[in-house]
């Protein structure tokens, strides 16, 4: 056990380090810092006395719903999740990894953990910065009041990254065209079905994430309706089950995978 735990740690560090030094990592950084740019623009306009359409806290709420939940988190999870094993296959290093005396599911989990560590850290920094920049007028007291909601948003974002990451990693292992299926699920199914009335929306991740987010950060009316549909505990339970199931299936597939299968994927 000690032998491959060291290997797992090494893989974890290597995956995380590679992400931070790669072009994809810089793209993620740019996307994560974009909300800061928007909020700085808003503050600049306010400071110059230009009439603006909305205030900092409203903008922050819109950013969390539309940008973080609706775009950044699913896109980054898709971006890095489908590539977790596929990048190794394309680079020809998968036979070396899987040929080591380390169980394949451990290789997968170590890489998954490395990926998630970077995504979680990056998202936390981005959202924290956005929260601070959007509440500059409110001052330290205002920020302290809103800290609870920020932590709920961050928790929802992290859970989103974990569950989406597990889902897209599974898609990356299971399908010949993982990008197509990941896109269909992440941007099609999730966005379409999460807004439908009825039970079907529980088969999306987005609905449960929205349930966890504080009501006052959302536009009034629509999300109040959805948030009332289930309890936060139920949302957490659903997300935990989905995440665990996706990871378990991924481990099963990783143990059975053939490198040649992945190399054929375009």
């Amino acid at each position: 056990m000690a032998a491959w735990s060291e290997a797992a740690k090494a893989l974890f560090s290597h995956t995380a380090g590679q992400m931070t030094r790669s072009v994809k990592g810089f793209v993620f950084l740019g996307l994560a810092l974009f909300p800061w740019g928007l909020l700085l623009l808003l503050q600049l306009l306010i400071w110059r006395g230009v009439p603006v359409g909305l205030g900092g806290s409203t903008l922050y709420g819109n950013l969390v719903v539309a940008y973080y939940m609706g775009f950044l988190i699913p896109l980054c999870a898709l971006f890095f999740g489908v590539a977790l094993i596929a990048d190794e296959a394309e680079g020809g290093t998968l036979p070396y990894l899987f040929g080591r005396p380390v169980p394949r599911h451990v290789v997968f989990l170590a890489k998954f953990a490395g990926m998630e560590s970077v995504l979680l850290a990056g998202t936390a920094v981005s959202m924290a910065g956005a929260f601070v920049l959007s509440n500059l007028e409110a001052g330290a007291l205002g920020m302290a009041k809103g800290a609870g909601d920020f932590l709920m948003d961050l928790t929802a974002a992290w859970l989103g990254l974990l569950v989406y990451g597990a889902l897209f990693s599974l898609i990356g292992l299971a399908f010949r065209r993982p990008l197509f299926w990941g896109f269909l699920v992440g941007f099609g199914w999730e966005n379409l079905v999460a807004w439908l009335p009825g039970f079907l929306k529980r088969i999306t991740i987005l609905f449960h994430l929205h349930t966890l987010m504080p009501e006052h950060t959302e536009p009034k009316g629509l999300l109040n309706l959805l948030a009332a549909s289930e309890s936060k505990a139920a949302a957490l339970a659903f997300l935990a089950v989905y995440g665990a199931a996706f990871l378990a299936l991924s481990c099963v597939l990783a143990r059975r995978i053939e490198a040649a299968h992945l190399e054929r994927e375009g």
Binding site: L38, G53, L54, L59, N62, L63, A66, G70, F71, L75
Partner: peptide, 13 residues
């Protein structure tokens, strides 16, 4: 897909 939320928020501002 980056453009949509980014533009919508910029427009709101």
């Amino acid at each position: 897909f980056f453009g949509l939320p980014a533009s919508a928020i910029l427009w709101a501002i």
